[in-house]
Design a protein around this nucleic acid. Structure first.
Lengths: 222, 222
DNA sequence: TGTTCTGTGTTAAAATATTAACAAGTATTT
DNA sequence: AAATACTTGTTAATATTTTAACACAGAACA
């Protein structure tokens, strides 16, 4: 019964498997082996099998995995089998990008509100949705019983926005503001910090550069 | 001399330290302990000290770290002491958000070109920079000797764009397209996949939901 | 100048995560 | 129907990462 709960690293890979399966199903592929999944995802076949094993046995030995069946299982595991309602706070370029992408390409979530403090943005449309004033946030979050929010406001106001959201019942925040949010223990925060990704990439790029430049550092034997 | 190279997980935290130090220096804080850094970053003090130790001994025992000194060291370590030139491919909302953020808030990088295939976008300005046609990409990358690129094009064309970039000498790619890029071994790719962050967040949020719903599962003593 | 206090840097232990190996099914072939 | 080929699920070994413990060095104070 009580299966050992899956590591965080595993949870981060599940959405990748899900996406590949979506693609395969669209291409009418019905069966897929862990080896081929490996090629598509970049993770090793062993890892994929082990990841799935945390949640059950979904494949057929000698054959592979049924794509539709495995997708359904993954949806259930991740919690996407029922649409997740969410709100976007901050309708700058990033907020708009996220709204547009999720509204058009992510069938598993339902954006029920996009909010911005800037009066000039309020009223304009994005993906058939009117951007609303922050003042209206409370009503919608309560009426729709929203639990998940994406924050794309400037860092200076992110904590205030988060506090507000939490008081309205939000328990999961995807934070794009480059700042640490202090939240109570029952609230989940994932930081999607684009600067971090860029700077750590630069680290590896520069590392190469140095090696190529540094010349012959090998000490000569006397 | 030959220090053991730092784990990936450490590299991902360095930009966070850097940001906090920037903030502290702006507030004229000159000395900081690992304990206070811990509060600001959310990482443990032990972890911070150990992370820094991979690169040297930058603090003073009994006192803490000099903020300016540590920032300079971190800049050197990450490779941000010299400005990194980079290009943005794809000028949709996400490309614009990244361009705007990095041009105005990230002093360590220099965006030398923003490119888009859509003729309607070409010529419009973002942060004082004209969006250029993909056709001009080659000239600028070569002229400026650019090594780093951010890709924010649709998934369908991401691989083609990446191949093109690599042929022009790009060796580091921050990929926002939700697809796996196949690249030669000397090219670094970091995937910044916003869907993955959102879906794994939903996993943890739904996990709670289930527990709260499930009712009293504790078996009664007879 | 010695004593105490504070906080770093280093070494050791514990916890996570990945990789490898293989036994156990399933399908296919002869 | 037996033998072969395949591919999963599970267990064991390895590697990585985090947490903990503490010796050591500088600062403050008596």
């Amino acid at each position: 019964m009580s299966r050992k709960s899956a590591p965080k690293s595993v949870i981060k890979r599940l959405p990748v498997y899900l996406r590949i399966l979506d693609n395969l199903i669209r291409r009418d592929v019905e069966i897929i082996s862990s080896r081929v999944l490996s090629e598509e995802t970049g993770f090793t076949a062993e890892q994929i099998r082990k990841d799935l094993a945390y949640f059950g046995a979904f494949g057929t030995r000698g054959t592979g995995y049924n794509t539709s069946y495995l997708r359904d299982k993954l949806l259930r595991i991740i919690g996407l089998d029922k649409q997740t309602r969410l709100v976007v706070i901050g309708a700058g370029h990033l907020g708009k990008a996220l709204t547009r992408y999720n509204a058009s390409k992510n069938p598993y979530v339902d954006i029920v509100g996009v909010f911005d403090a800037n009066p000039e943005e309020v009223g304009t449309e994005i993906e058939g949705m009117k951007i609303q004033p922050i003042a209206d946030m409370s009503d919608i979050i309560k009426a729709e019983n929203v639990k998940v929010a994406m924050i794309t406001v400037p860092a200076e106001v992110a904590q205030k926005v988060a506090d507000n959201l939490i008081s309205l019942g939000i328990t999961a925040i995807l934070n794009f503001a480059p700042t640490k949010l202090n939240v109570p223990g029952n609230v989940h925060v994932h930081n999607a910090d684009l600067t971090i990704e860029l700077q750590s990439l630069i680290y590896y790029a520069m590392e190469d550069e140095k090696q190529n430049l540094g010349g012959n550092n090998i000490p000569q034997k006397p």
